[in-house]
Design a protein around this nucleic acid. Structure first.
Ligand SMILES: [Zn+2]
Ligand SMILES: [Zn+2]
Ligand SMILES: [Zn+2]
Ligand SMILES: [Zn+2]
Lengths: 160, 160
DNA sequence: CACAGATCGTTATATAATTACAGGAGACGT
DNA sequence: ACGTCTCCTGTAATTATATAACGATCTGTG
């Protein structure tokens, strides 16, 4: 199952499915899926890129949903803490989770040319980090795995 | 070869060996290892933790080596771009490289309790990132691999 | 309604990083 | 030694990212 967001796809379903899944999850877990939180999730889902907090804030401001940084950061904190979105450390930016149902340690592929970001599943105990941790007796609680480079489309464009 | 910095070791040699190796490399490659650059490297080597740019700047200021942010950032840029130091994205901070001779894609173990950071070697093509990239046709140029958790000493302390 | 807890609106502040430009020190060919 | 070029430095100003603090408002519950 290769990542799909680098390829053409029916993107409107990315948005609607994403919102619907979170809506369901919130209802089941008695979480408040408020207007701002919903809108921020929609913004994140709207493109497969990582959004800076202030970019999101600008959108909210245009729509009269809030104008100060804490408004955006609180909504993002909610989404991230419940696994509906992820923070991309390399970019100081945020992206909607594309498989938030599973309890996961995400990894990301970031295209430096078109800025698209794709989330891949990953096992935190696998790979070099896990091996190094094990041999050092280190207990991993959270991992950051981000790869920067060129997506297939941009590689083609560059070498064409 | 397990990482060593979580264990007791002769730390004075960490500093002197590190400076000497960089000094040699700069001489061989006609790079200018200026006073500020050397001092910043020494500061980084002084503890196995990640230093914020402004922490370093404070030290430089005390010593009359510069007082404005660009002084610290320029030295750090030099060190990072030549592989003598690494940026820890998760912490917005910097650490001296512990095996800068080899052409490498580093991975880090970050203890959230004692703040020690250990660098492990890693192959960028291995692990989940590499697999995901390959199946997506993505060309990796740089990776961020950072694990946060508890080092052996701090795990012991917590469960004791 | 009365209450507790979560959420929101707003101001101010903290922290991290970059831009821009003038000046200085060394390398280098003449 | 002289000019000249390049890299390095000093400093002010600004931009970008994130959090603290506090009162007001909403939401569900008895
Ligand atoms: Zn899509
Ligand atoms: Zn691309
Ligand atoms: Zn040491
Ligand atoms: Zn520790």
């Amino acid at each position: 199952m290769p990542p799909t967001a680098f390829e053409p796809h029916d993107h409107s379903s990315c948005v609607s499915d994403g919102v619907a899944a979170v809506e369901r999850h919130c209802a089941e877990h008695k979480l408040q899926f408020t207007k701002v939180r919903r809108r921020v999730l929609e913004i994140l889902l709207n493109q497969h890129k990582a959004w800076g907090a202030y970019e999101i804030l600008d959108k909210l401001r245009e729509e009269g949903l809030g104008s100060q940084p804490p408004v955006a950061y609180r909504a993002l904190d909610f989404l991230v803490s419940h696994g509906f979105a992820h923070r991309i450390e390399r970019l100081n930016a945020f992206i909607a989770c594309t498989h938030f149902d599973t309890h996961h340690a995400p990894a990301f592929l970031i295209c430096r040319s078109c800025n698209r970001v794709v989330e891949a599943e990953s096992d935190p105990r696998a790979g070099e980090l896990g091996r190094a941790a094990q041999s050092a007796g280190f207990v991993i609680e959270r991992t950051v795995r981000e790869a920067e480079g060129l997506c297939p489309a941009c590689v083609g464009r560059a070498s064409a």
